[in-house]
């Protein structure tokens, strides 16, 4: 037998759900009815939502997307390693290593301050311009390096914010056991800091997954470039829609997962 409060609350809930469902429905109906009434709808439908072209180009796009995944897969670990190294370098307190610290600060300032595409152009066209022999003139190498340099700068800042968020009492406890400052960093501070910034770094890696497409500007035929090829070949924009759907299939679940991690962390801490 439900109590009076339970009855009241379940009625409230039903009411709220009903309102949400009917307003969502109204918006959807409006879109479905109104958008096709636009004067250019037929043309847009033909050039962006062409089912036949979609079916023809989708397998090729999927194939090209494998290259995006490959580039991501070799960049991500290098970004994590370089980002960690730079974050640690920025936290150095030994006077003899001051040049390293200075370099790390300079590095993060420069690469966070530049548009990704500009770095890709400068490194991707500039370095092979030195006349390097094959395979050292490959746009894969230098394009990847550009992505690694830019993203590692962001990852380094995120990790550093994690290091700074660890309360000083942890440091004091580790030092007063007689641990060296490098052991304190390695065994006490970093493990906590890195755990704390996992969700923030997840978001960076999702952004990286999208920015891999920028490498197409210097040569590699990955999905965005492949969609462009199909567009020119078939005089139709549908391949771009296909490419967008493939990106979303990866990034939406990844974003949801990062949000989930962040929520869990917030709950654990409160």
């Amino acid at each position: 037998m439900p109590s009076r409060r339970q009855i009241f609350e379940s009625r409230q809930r039903r009411r709220a759900n009903l309102i949400a469902a009917s307003s969502t429905g109204a918006v959807l109906v409006a879109l479905i009815v109104l958008v096709p009434m636009a004067p250019g709808w037929d043309a847009v439908q033909r050039s962006f939502f062409n089912a036949e072209i979609f079916a023809r180009t989708f397998p090729g796009l999927l194939n090209a997307f494998l290259l995006d995944i490959a580039i991501f897969a070799w960049c991500a670990p290098l970004i994590a390693a370089l980002g960690l190294a730079v974050a640690i370098a920025r936290d150095l307190r030994t006077p003899a290593l001051y040049p390293v610290k200075l370099l790390a600060i300079l590095y993060t300032d420069i690469f966070r301050g530049l548009p990704v595409i500009l770095v890709i152009y400068l490194i991707g066209f500039g370095v092979p311009g030195l006349g390097l022999p094959r395979p050292w003139n490959s746009p894969y190498i230098w394009g990847s390096l550009a992505l690694i340099l830019v993203y590692a700068a962001y990852v380094a800042e995120v990790i550093r914010s994690g290091i700074e968020s660890i309360h000083d009492s942890q440091r004091a406890a580790a030092l007063s056991l007689g641990l060296s400052s490098s052991d304190t960093m390695r065994f006490v501070i970093l493990p906590q800091a890195i755990r704390r910034v996992v969700p923030a770094n997840m978001n960076l890696f999702i952004a990286l997954q999208k920015d891999v497409a920028l490498l197409s500007f210097i040569g590699p035929v990955e999905i965005f470039r492949q969609a462009g090829v199909y567009k020119s070949l078939l005089a139709n924009f549908t391949p771009y829609v296909g490419a967008a759907l493939i990106f979303l299939a990866i990034t939406i679940p990844a974003t949801r997962y990062a949000d989930h991690l962040m929520n869990r962390q917030r709950q654990a801490r409160s």
């Binding site: 009492s169 942890q170 004091a172 406890a173 906590q192 755990r195």
Partner: peptide, 13 residues
Amino acid sequence: IGTVFQSYNLFPH
């Protein structure tokens, strides 16, 4: 010299 603090300061991980 061992030290123990007011707020324990155990390593939580």
